[in-house]
Design a binder for these strands. Structure first.
Lengths: 229, 229
DNA sequence: CGCTGCCGTAACATCGCTGTCATACTATCC
DNA sequence: GGATAGTATGACAGCGATGTTACGGCAGCG
């Protein structure tokens, strides 16, 4: 459940520093020293977030960000810009190209961590490995464990992801296609009714501690996780 | 619930970007790369809003907008213009042809979303998923929930849509054909009397918290939602 | 290889929503 | 007051959405 970060930074010292700190924080880190290398890495696999230096040799960071946001494959990836000066002009320009946040050097590891978590939480709350709790039900991605009132609950991988998604997006209805997109992945071809079955299995598992009522059916709309009522 | 957007944009990269972002935001997106293709699509079905590029091959965006506003069938559809530079002259001309808003490239997804919401709210309030409240009655499309003075109220899908439409268009009488058009959809063949029945069911559900008086009958005209009296 | 656990699909059962009708009620006009 | 048009109400049949279960396939593992 740990997110993968791509660091694009030409100064080796800072790159090392970032890689070490982020590695310590539990992220998987992939590093690139130029926009070209970063682009090559992106062809291999997509990270969950990109840390992008403002000043890069060759294509500048802002230009690279623009390219990323123009490409269907990479546009969904949140970007945090690393900029040397706190120039308001740059900040505006950065955010306009689609960057989700920016960070002014020098920055503390603590601040870096906080920004990354905030951005990941905003774009995809289930990517952070913070434990979630509601109504006595607790799900901890770090230990891959679910408990209801302290009692352990066994879940299959899909039910775990499903519950994780719902718990990190509570009080909101999701249709079957939406859940398939966000829990199964957007390029999977699966019957809509499959969602029903996994909801059923999830409820079955939650029955042991009486938490099945947290998964609510909204007829004609989809499903909702709610600790109210 | 979710609005349909028509994107008219010849640059594939920007079209993709828009389609992706808007799709994520929960809108249904139809794309066209030219005014001609857009016109053809409009003959099939009408979107709730049109995002129109200023520069288009063939008929320019401004000319196309003028045509849309000249046609009775499409005149009501709001238009947001996409323009490359912040040229004041273009802005004036765009708004003069009937565009409801305009957006200067490059723009952030956040700003795009805000503009679309604002325009839709103005033209078709029930298309946004903002919560509505009046007289202690609260309806939240995102969570698909209705409460009266905090007490949950159960509604079927049709009653929910009906109440949503009425609450987002308060203090105004709607005839049965109008309600059938806007709540059921324009190409559905249903008896007019059916509206009565659903109004009845809606009132029945609202009685639990004493909110049934918000749905008022206007003899010979139709129904009205009003928090006054 | 057999066992085990998980997954996706299909088939069936069930429940609730929906549209229509018949009937009772109410307002308006003469 | 009676006639008439408009509206409210309750019952009902049909159907679609959802719940539930069973089964076959498949990957991991000993």
């Amino acid at each position: 459940m740990s997110a993968t970060l791509l660091v694009v930074e030409d100064e080796p010292a800072i790159q090392e520093l970032l890689a070490y700190n982020l590695g310590q924080a539990g992220y998987r880190v992939v590093a690139a020293h130029s926009a070209e290398q970063a682009a090559a890495l992106l062809r291999e696999s997509l990270p969950d977030l990109i840390l992008l230096d403002w000043m890069l040799p060759g294509a500048s960071g802002i230009e690279f960000a623009r390219r990323l946001k123009a490409d269907a494959a990479t546009r969904a990836i949140p970007i945090i810009m690393l900029t040397a000066r706190g120039d308001e002009q740059d900040k505006i320009a950065g955010l306009e190209t689609g960057a989700d946040d920016y960070l002014t050097k020098p920055f503390s590891p603590r601040e870096l961590g906080a920004r990354i978590k905030a951005v990941l939480r905003r774009r995809a709350p289930q990517m952070t490995d913070d434990a979630v709790e509601a109504g006595g039900l607790r799900l901890d991605p770090a230990t891959h464990r679910v408990t209801g009132n302290g009692q352990p609950i066994e879940l299959g991988p899909t039910e775990f992801r499903l519950l994780h998604y719902l718990m990190t997006h509570p009080e909101r209805v999701y249709s079957r296609p939406q859940l398939l997109d966000r829990v199964w992945g957007s390029h999977v071809f699966v019957e809509e009714r499959t969602v029903d079955v996994h909801i059923r299995r999830l409820r079955g598992a939650l029955e042991a501690t009486g938490h099945e009522c947290l998964i609510q059916t909204v007829r004609g709309a989809g499903y909702r996780f709610s600790a109210k009522d």
